[in-house]
């Protein structure tokens, strides 16, 4: 049952991500991205990482994507942009990047195949995660908080309106 769910959600994630790649309308692309992220979150749940699954939904699919939506709305990119995107996405430009990515993907596959078959899906309790976070990883957590603070300040600074004359 879980296995079926895993493959199903994996399929959804891949399909949604693919749509992100080829979607010309930014808002539509964002919506596909949300679907992809939700599918990933479900896979986290299936893998037994409940806490991570919840965070994925709340923060990724919630907060981060909402940020994107806000920005798209602020910029008010109309249908003209969609036309432009269509022009940009002419078939010719696919070849090079796709080939490179295929190579990289093939290499990843080769690496994966070497490792042999293993089972995943062991449940990790949120309690152990909390202990790990505030035990051995305390410094990393503090650093991450500082990084967030820096991101906050940076975003505030960059988001200010331009001064007149510049």
């Amino acid at each position: 049952m879980e296995l079926t769910l895993f493959y199903l959600s994996a399929l959804v994630a891949i399909a949604a991500t693919f749509m992100v790649v080829i979607q010309c309308n930014t808002v539509h692309a964002l919506l596909y991205l949300i679907v992809s992220l939700l599918a990933s979150g479900f896979i986290f749940y299936l893998l037994g990482a409940f806490f991570a699954a919840v965070l994925e939904v709340i923060i990724y699919a919630g907060a981060i994507i909402v940020l994107f939506v806000f920005v798209v709305m602020m910029l008010n990119l109309g249908s003209k942009t969609i036309e432009q995107e269509k022009q940009w996405l002419c078939p010719g430009i696919w070849h090079g990047p796709a080939a490179l990515c295929a190579i990289l993907f093939a290499e990843l596959l080769v690496t994966l195949m070497r490792s042999g078959a293993h089972e995943a899906g062991r449940i990790v309790e949120s309690k152990t995660l909390g202990i790990a976070l505030f035990g051995p990883y305390l410094l990393a957590v503090e650093t991450a908080s500082m990084l967030l603070l820096a991101g906050l300040v940076g975003a505030y600074h960059l988001g200010r309106p331009l001064r007149s004359g510049s």
Binding site: L100, C101, I103, L104, E107, T111
Partner: peptide, 13 residues
């Protein structure tokens, strides 16, 4: 960067 990553990974493979 992608090219470089592919190259390094290829060396590993």
């Amino acid at each position: 960067m992608l090219f470089g990553a592919a190259l390094i990974l290829a060396l590993g493979v």
